[in-house]
């Protein structure tokens, strides 16, 4: 088991964003995290990456308690992420963006020039090698998302968290990105993806976790989850004829 959440809760001044969620992430799987708006998906992400500590509960990574570990140190251990609203470093070149992950991530390369060469591999995975010298701010949205992915991959993660990677992409970009996500998993990287596009998640994820109003309401394969009454209620509202 790669990641384990033990009864984690996060309250923001009385608002319970995540409430007593327990979950496990297995090595090598793609876990889809879905739920309606405000269900606490991004908050759960931030608890895993360490942006803030949980109000209650504990987080384990590779059997180690990382509840109090800072975000940069979690990256050193092998947890990398992308952001819901893309956040590459705009004034830096595409190459420098990716090199950031290679110089500072897990198993870092201390020489900058060797790190630059090494991170070309992750730029190639996302298809940005030809634009290595451009500034990140000159890229289109889909390319900025790819760049963020390359930066995360360059950090040599064991666990990769994708926060709405597919949001804002056109249908053909969604399809290629889904292929990309699968190929990253095939490289041996475990993935947790938060997504609004339920269809897309069901297409790539091995397992789905459903959050609603901060609580975990269902867990299972895409087929199990899509027929779960709680999930249907959460997404469509309760049926009047029950």
């Amino acid at each position: 088991m790669l990641l384990k959440l033990e009864e984690v809760s996060k309250a923001f001044k009385g608002l319970m964003a995540v409430h007593a969620v327990s979950a496990e992430v297995h090595e090598g799987e793609i876990l889809g995290l879905i739920g309606p708006n405000g269900a606490g998906k991004t908050t759960l992400f931030n608890l895993i990456t360490g942006v803030y500590p949980p109000t209650e509960g504990r987080v384990f990574f590779e059997e180690k308690d990382i509840t109090k570990v800072a975000p940069h140190a979690r990256c050193w251990m092998g947890i990398a992420r992308t952001f819901q609203l893309v956040r590459p470093f705009p004034e830096l070149s595409v190459l420098d963006n990716a090199a950031m992950g290679r110089v500072y991530g897990r198993d870092p390369i201390k020489s900058r020039s060797r790190a630059e060469t090494a991170c070309l591999e992750s730029l190639e995975i996302v298809g940005l090698t030809g634009r290595a010298s451009e500034k990140a701010k000159s890229l289109t949205l889909v390319d900025r998302k790819r760049l963020e992915l390359a930066r995360a991959l360059a950090a040599k993660p064991k666990l990769l968290l994708l926060d709405e990677l597919l949001a804002g992409l056109n249908p053909s970009e969604v399809l290629t990105s889904m292929q990309l996500i699968k190929s990253i998993r095939d490289m041996g990287i475990t993935i947790i993806m938060v997504e609004h596009l339920v269809k897309a998640v069901f297409g790539v994820a091995d397992r789905i976790v459903v959050l609603n109003a901060g609580e975990l309401i269902a867990e299972g394969t895409p087929a199990e989850v899509s027929s779960d009454q709680n999930v249907i209620d959460a997404y469509l509202g309760k049926s009047l004829r029950v």
Binding site: H72, R87, F89, L92, M100, V103, Y104, G105
Partner: peptide, 19 residues
Amino acid sequence: LGILGVREDEEAAQASGVH
């Protein structure tokens, strides 16, 4: 790289392992 990363986006830099 880390110094410029802090200037560009502290949180993103931190997520990339920058102290």
